[in-house]
Each structure stands twice: as structure tokens, then as C-alpha cells.
Simulated assay, not measured.
Amino acid sequence: MPARPVSAIWKNKISILTESFDLWWDDFKKHIPQDGCDIFFRADDIGYPGRQFSAMIEAFKEHQTPLALAVVPAWFNEDRKNSLLTELGPDLNLWCMHQHGYRHMNHEQQGKKFEFGPSRDAATVSGELSRGRNKLEKLLGNQFSPLFTPPWNRCSANTMKSLVELNFTAISRSTNVSPEPPRNLPDIPVNIDLHTIKEISPEKGTEKLQELLIGAVESGQAGFMLHHQRMNKTAQIFLHYLLDKIKNTHTLRVKDIRDML
């Protein structure tokens, strides 16, 4: 997989970032509802284990924090499965391995990117979803969870109808996206983007992340989206810092995405 660009926020010195968040955290806690806020973490674009992936996994292991791993079926094979399980083990309970599209390929000629968007017919969509699920179930066995994360956090109504027919139990997209999912397909959205923030300066990137954190906790549910391919050393160190901050803030409740149904 080619290298992904690193957001400007991670071009800060780590000392500047942590000092900024230390000063800001007490004010941030005032935005958390009195009855607390549920938090979960989801990492996308899983399929190629490597150094950046290992660094991300090490952080979640060290802090004993559950992580949903969105696996791209077309990127996955027996060798990569073995590497992945070795990296995650021996205790696999922290990880919710689920389906992330099929090939992670954009099929729209205009507008926003979709793998499963409005231009694709229902039979093709259903076929790819089914093949992807069957492949992951064969490779992962009982470690596969029947949740679905669409690439770019969006998909068509036909896609969600197919997910129900294929017995998926939930979908995870971005917050406030359309169309609405069927009543029997719960949506567990992310609303904090850790690694693809588009602000062009480190300072603006920091402000944006803090803005996203406040908005998320005020809603009562905070879902973090991670992309390990976009993590440099600063982002890796900050992830340890953030997981520790959250763990030591009693009004923030870290959840396994599977328990949020």
C-alpha cells in the first residue's frame, strides 16, 4: 500500500501537543454530560500488517482498550491473517474484526467517493458484500464479527438493505450521514477523526481535534476513527497519551463496539 499523507496536526512537537491538551482537558471535562459519555475506537483500512499497524496495536494492548478493526476482504489472505493474529494475540478479546467494504475502491464517476454508492446495481452490491463476508468468515472463523464499515463512511440505501439480508447486525458510518439505515440495522457512528484532519497548520489541526472532542462528548457518544497508515511517531505517542487521559477521566466510559448494540 502506498504511503498516506500525514495531517498537519502530527507535525507538531509532541511536547507542544500534550502541553496544549493538558491545559485544555479540565475545560473539556465540563462538556461531558453528568451521566457520562460512552466512547469506542474504530481503525479502518486493515489488511497489511506492518510497523505503523504494530505501533497502533501496541497502544491499545498497553492500555487494555478495545478496538474495532475494519478489515478489507480483498486485501486479506491466509498469510496476512496469520501475521495479524500473531500481532493481536494471545488474547483476542480486545479486537472486533469486521468487514470494511470489499475492495475499498471508488466506483463513482462524479461527486463523493463511494465503493457502494448510487451508481451500482443491487445485485452487484449484494454479490460483493456476500463474497467479502464469506472470505472473512472463512479466514477469521469465530473471530469475525458481522458488522460493516463502508469505505469513506457512506453507502447507498440498497447497500444497507443487502446488509440486512446478509444478516449483518450493525453498520458504522460517520455521524449525521444519509440515507437513514433500516430500523433493523443499528448505526454506530464515528464522530472524531484522529488522522485525516484536513486543516493546513498544526495549530488549526489541534483546534479542530479539540472541537471534534467537545462536540462528540456533548452528544453522549464519542466514536474515534483511526488510520494507522497516517500515523507518524508523534501521532503514535499522542495515541498513548490520549488513551491514558480517557482511562483516567471517570465520566468517559470506554466500550467495545460490540457492546454498543
Rank of each mutant, 00 (worst) to 15 (best):
P146G: 15
N176F: 09
F168P: 10
E128H: 09
C155Q: 07
R258E: 03
V72Y: 04
V71C: 11
E218S: 06
I39Q: 02
I171L: 12
L147M: 15
M231G: 14
V72R: 01
K30L: 14
E199P: 01
C96M: 04
D244Y: 09
E218V: 01
Q229C: 10
E62I: 14
V71Y: 07
E108H: 09
R258H: 05
K138E: 14
H227P: 11
P5R: 08
F28N: 07
F224I: 03
L194W: 07
H195V: 03
L85D: 08
T86E: 12
A59S: 12
K11R: 15
C37N: 02
L261N: 03
K112H: 12
G205D: 03
V72C: 13
T159I: 08
E203C: 00
K11E: 15
D259N: 10
I192P: 00
W24Q: 12
D193W: 00
E180L: 13
D35H: 03
W75V: 10
P73M: 08
L166N: 14
L67T: 13
S15F: 15
F224W: 06
P179G: 10
G47M: 02
N191T: 02
E211G: 00
D45M: 04
H227E: 13
G111S: 04
A3M: 06
W95K: 06
D27S: 15
I16T: 15
P189D: 00
S162T: 01
L139D: 06
